[in-house]
Design a protein around this nucleic acid. Sequence first.
DNA 1: AAGTAATAGTATACGATGTACAGTGTCCCG
DNA 2: CGGGACACTGTACATCGTATACTATTACTT
Lengths: 257, 257
Amino acid sequence: MRLLWRSPDDRDRRRPGPKRRLTVDQIVTASISVADENGDVSMRAVAERLGVTPMALYSYVPDKETLLALMYDSIHADVSDPQRVGADWRRAVVTWAEELVDLYVSHPWALQVSYARPVLGPHEQVMLERLVAHLRSEAIPPGLLRRAVGMLLHAVRGTARTIAEARESARTSGVSEEEWWEEVAGALAAAVPDFADRFPHTVWLLTDDEAAGGDEAGDGYVDRQARASLRVGLELLLDGLVAAAGLTESDHGDSAP
Amino acid sequence: MRLLWRSPDDRDRRRPGPKRRLTVDQIVTASISVADENGDVSMRAVAERLGVTPMALYSYVPDKETLLALMYDSIHADVSDPQRVGADWRRAVVTWAEELVDLYVSHPWALQVSYARPVLGPHEQVMLERLVAHLRSEAIPPGLLRRAVGMLLHAVRGTARTIAEARESARTSGVSEEEWWEEVAGALAAAVPDFADRFPHTVWLLTDDEAAGGDEAGDGYVDRQARASLRVGLELLLDGLVAAAGLTESDHGDSAP
DNA sequence: AAGTAATAGTATACGATGTACAGTGTCCCG
DNA sequence: CGGGACACTGTACATCGTATACTATTACTT
């Protein structure tokens, strides 16, 4: 907390002992760039980048988990796009979600930070405040909205995770998505010749019902599917929210016959 | 693939060399029980349980990732609840999702298996087939449904992940959820006295608007919130799907002004 | 029946990882 | 000007996945 919100501390002024050669901000910045390059952080890598022994970091940061929390909060400073509340809130929410996905895709290591014990740092908080500001304009009780926001975050993180993992797989295995799918499809057909009989609905689900016009050419199949899925999910969720707002705080949660 | 679908193989019959002392099934079963006990697998732990050298496993399974895929598919055999298609499909889908959450909560290690390069094993496939069977009864184009299913899976996995992480944190740190929240709330109040001024919407969002009747007493706060969030999210998604089915395969995906 | 080649399982080892512990030199304050 | 707090270093440990070299066992060929 102290570290996250940069509250002044006893430790900050005049103490015996040698001068400090680093700052927490330096460490966090270095860690982020190391993590972005390697896909993950390690105390040793960060220390090396800073020209320091691994153990030196431990006088600034209690452990790696805390460092990750600091890095996590820090990158959320980059989504700070102030937008007017009120006008076209739906579009604003969709934009918010897609920006967040992009953020996590470009900093995939951030996805290992848990929601179970939230970080509660200033930048992440700003981001959430902004989202709620857009959504609150509707007549939705806080309990319902809280849950919807939770779901929204799951959608964003899941989407980002899938995209990031797809890239990572391609990078480390050297096998491109197309090659992989082809390979796997072949292996599956060989191993399970009666697939279509055993899983007719699944086969139907994979039917392509739209012009395959990929709007963003550079990205992979998974990337496009995941983003489309997010968009659809968002639309459905927001539709649902609007409808629920009409009913105003009554029986959601149980739809018994 | 071969391993997942248990296709017969050259390797299965008469070869020179000593007799095999294990089977893949034994290894997978042992791995699952080890993982369930320790929260994660390691080749060494599995080998020890089987009374064998770590390296011995490598003649059955090419690497740990493959082993995880096998374990992952294997646990999906446990959700095999055949239900009649047609009658109350909404409830069926909700049940399906909640069972899946329970599955992942009791086997949290399964969440490290990626969606980017799907496992495509038989048991997972059965589970998906079942879901699609319920959902397909509506007049929804496959492309839309495919995306909705993706979102649904993100919701389930996100929910399970959060719950599992909450338990894991409590277990390893020894600090209960309540204690942690109290601690953190105190630290936050101390570090950011003007929180309510800076984040009014967030504060509003945390307003408790319902009788705090926890129906399941034993579970933690995170657990209840996460499950409630899933339920709400599902309702919204399914509502949205029904509505979209009415419009029949027209303009979803872009809601331009 | 004997030799050959393939295989299963073992032993050892390497390079990572986070971080505990002890030591060394530096600086503030009494 | 001394004493104690402190920053940083060096070394060390346990843990991980798995490469490599080896031994012992078996089937197939002759």
